[in-house]
Computed example of a mutant assay.
Amino acid sequence: MIRFWTLVFAILLPIQAMAAPVRLKDLADFDGVRGNDLVGYGLVVGLDGTGDSLRNAPFTEEMLAGLLERLGVNVTDDALRSKNVAAVVVTATLPPFARSGSRIDVSVSTIGDAKSLLGGTLVMTPLKAADGNIYAVAQGSIIAGGVAVEGEAARVVQGVPTAGAIPVGARVEREVEFDFAAVQNIRIALRNADFTTATRVEDAINRDFNRRLAVAQDSGTIVVEFRQLGDVNPARVLGRIENLLIEPEDRAKVVIDHKAGTIVMGEQVRISRVAVSQGSLTLRVSEAPLVSQPNPFSAGETVTVPRTMAEVREEPGIGFAEVSSETSLSDLVEGLNALGVRPRDMIDILKSIHAAGALHADLIIE
């Protein structure tokens, strides 16, 4: 049986037309105040037989031999039979202004055929940035993200046991050189570029300092010339700016997730006058083969005769329904619900209304 547009799940989340005031630090990033990605390649030991098969993961075997050799143990590749070791990729983010000796969190993921990292310990692993320099060293016991149990005929996996984390598992060994006190101006980058929001940020900063310090360069960048205040501490100025309350503005959007059947629409969505008609179609195909068997002692043979039964049924839907001009989100949702339109059908209706040019919003299909 094939049913077109099977109902999955849908959520309509109305969002206020004018969002509540939000701190500027939650809307934007500040130039120079950013983290740096780190990555490393290491070994996890102490696994309970759930590590890499060394013959299937030669890189693990090579790393294990190199580790033992650095520790003063000479061993040949043929002597390595352990399944308690796994090769992993270690990732972390070096936060802004991190100082030597501070600790950061790391994530660990297998790259071989290891089945679980539960109970494993990461051996000292250097973490490098994009410039190739080592900025931190990671080591410690892994907290795995799941569990796996298996027997000869079945295997049950809950979560992701091949990935884990080590809270504060890396120590910063090298600092990123950045003299924040010598900064002459501050550039604010909005995470969602919008001219209205940018001008509101500009006005809020100038109003708070009672002078023209901020200038919106474009929809996503505001420059603050704080040196006009004299010899001030940039950190104190930034701390004052980032706590200013801003009412963000955004474009009207309709986000559709086909896989989950989810619809999210903002309050700014508007629909022009349009007529909508909707129905659904069900196609049922079933097989009931017949077996034709010859009489006893006859020269014939048994054959299977296929028999297919097909049924097409059009379920009753709504007739033409008129949506008036400049309909708001609440009116649209109320009208579709009153007509008994299912969430999956709402997706098709919204796509068709957008194709007709009557949906005044960005349609985002994921």
Rank of each mutant, 00 (worst) to 15 (best):
Met1Glu: 14
Phe4Met: 15
Gln16Phe: 10
Ala17Thr: 12
Leu24Cys: 02
Leu27Ser: 06
Ala28Gln: 09
Phe30Leu: 03
Arg34Thr: 09
Arg34Pro: 09
Tyr41Asn: 06
Asp52Val: 08
Asn56Gly: 09
Glu61Met: 10
Glu62Tyr: 08
Met63Asn: 13
Leu64Arg: 02
Ala65Asn: 07
Leu71Gly: 03
Gly72His: 09
Val75Trp: 05
Val75Asn: 14
Val75Gln: 13
Thr76Ala: 13
Asp77His: 14
Asp78Tyr: 04
Arg81Ala: 15
Ala86Asp: 06
Ala87Phe: 07
Val88Phe: 01
Thr93Leu: 02
Leu94Cys: 09
Ala98Val: 02
Arg99Val: 09
Ser102Ala: 14
Val106Asp: 13
Ile111Asn: 10
Asp113Phe: 10
Ser116Asp: 14
Leu118Met: 13
Val123Leu: 10
Val123Phe: 01
Ala130Glu: 02
Ile134Pro: 13
Ile134Asp: 02
Gly140Pro: 01
Gly145Gln: 08
Gly146Tyr: 15
Gly146His: 04
Gly146Thr: 14
Val147Lys: 07
Gly151Val: 00
Glu152Asn: 00
Ala153Asp: 05
Val157Asn: 07
Pro161Gln: 06
Thr162Gly: 13
Gly164Val: 01
Val168Cys: 11
Val168Gln: 04
Gly169Trp: 02
Arg171Thr: 14
Val172Thr: 05
Arg174Lys: 15
Arg174Gly: 07
Arg174Ala: 14
Ala182Ile: 07
Ala182Glu: 09
Gln184Val: 04
Phe195Trp: 14
Thr197Cys: 08
Thr197Ile: 15
Glu202Leu: 05
Arg212His: 08
Asp218Ala: 14
Ile222Lys: 06
Val224Tyr: 12
Gln228Pro: 07
Gly230Ala: 12
Val232Asn: 03
Ala235Arg: 15
Arg240Trp: 08
Ile241Met: 05
Ile241Gly: 04
Glu242Ser: 03
Glu242Phe: 05
Asn243Phe: 04
Leu245Ser: 10
Leu245Pro: 08
Arg251Val: 02
Lys253Leu: 11
Val254Thr: 02
Val255Ala: 13
Asp257Leu: 10
Asp257Phe: 06
Ile263Thr: 01
Met265Ile: 09
Gln268Met: 03
Gln268Val: 03
Arg270Met: 11
Arg270Trp: 05
Ile271Leu: 10
Ser272Ile: 01
Ser272Cys: 06
Arg273Pro: 11
Val274Glu: 07
Ala275Tyr: 06
Gly279Phe: 10
Leu281Tyr: 09
Val285Pro: 00
Ala288Met: 04
Pro296Gly: 02
Ser298Cys: 15
Ser298Glu: 07
Gly300Ser: 06
Glu301Leu: 06
Glu311Cys: 07
Glu315Asn: 04
Gly319Phe: 15
Glu326Asp: 15
Leu332Cys: 09
Glu334Cys: 13
Arg344Asn: 11
Ile349Tyr: 05
Leu350Lys: 06
Ala358Arg: 01
Ala358Lys: 15
Leu359Lys: 08
His360Arg: 03
Asp362Lys: 12
Asp362Gln: 13
Leu363Ala: 11
Leu363Tyr: 08
Ile364Lys: 12
Ile365Asn: 11
